[in-house]
Every structure is written in structure tokens, then in C-alpha cells.
């Protein structure tokens, strides 16, 4: 069933985000000085990482929308984002 596949996909994307989010917390706890470094364009790690987490969330959300298959599987349908529209309520 596609819902199993969707669930696995959700779990994978969730784990990926969790990894990055935990990374942010761990750096702040164990190496807060790292947050003050300015690796790029004079902007510090704290801002890059913070913006990164927000943008990553949006990207993952879109990725999930794109890759999710319709819940009621039909062989003829491909997993395009609009496919959900074809499903009856």
C-alpha cells in the first residue's frame, strides 16, 4: 500500500530534520563559541544555521508533497504533486 510507503518517507524526512535540529541544540550547549564564527559573507553561524533550519523545513515539506503517493493507490496514477486532487473524498 502506498500509505506504508508514505509513512516510511515521512519517517525518513522527519529523522533528517531531527538530526539538524538536534545539531543546533548540541552546538549551542557544547560549543556556543562556534555560533559566533563568521564563515561566509560576514554573517555568523547562528544566523546561517537558524535560517537553514527554517528553509530546510520548507524544502522537506515540499519534497514530501512531491514524493507522496495517493493514499488510495491506482496503478495509472503517477506520484505528481497534484495527484491528490483526483482522489475522491
Amino acid at each position: 500500500m502506498s500509505s506504508v510507503r508514505n509513512n516510511r518517507l515521512a519517517a525518513q524526512l522527519f529523522s533528517l530534520y531531527l538530526l539538524f535540529y538536534s545539531g543546533f541544540i548540541l552546538i549551542n550547549i557544547f560549543a556556543p563559541q562556534l555560533m559566533e564564527m563568521t564563515p561566509l559573507a560576514g554573517v555568523n553561524v547562528a544566523i546561517w544555521y537558524g535560517f537553514g533550519l527554517i528553509i530546510l523545513a520548507v524544502i522537506l515539506a515540499f519534497l514530501y508533497g512531491l514524493l507522496c503517493q495517493p493514499i488510495h493507490d491506482r496503478p495509472s496514477e503517477s506520484s505528481v504533486p497534484q495527484s491528490g486532487k483526483d482522489i475522491r473524498a
Binding site: 544566523i47 537558524g50 535560517f51 527554517i54 528553509i55 523545513a57 520548507v58 515539506a61 515540499f62 514530501y64 508533497g65 507522496c68 495517493p70 493514499i71 491528490g84 486532487k85 482522489i87 473524498a89
Partner: peptide, 26 residues
């Protein structure tokens, strides 16, 4: 919303608008 697919889609729209707003918040 009418079904799970719509629930998912509206969450994605929600995340995008909210994420954009939070970037602006700084």
C-alpha cells in the same frame, strides 16, 4: 478540509508561509 491529502497540502502551504514570516521576524 475534506481528506488526508488536503490536510497534508494545507500543512505544506502553512509551513511555507510561516517559515517565510519567521525569516522576516529577525
Amino acid at each position: 478540509v475534506k481528506d488526508e491529502v488536503s490536510a497534508r497540502k494545507s500543512t505544506i502551504v502553512g509551513i511555507t508561509s510561516i517559515g517565510f514570516f519567521y525569516v522576516l521576524s529577525l
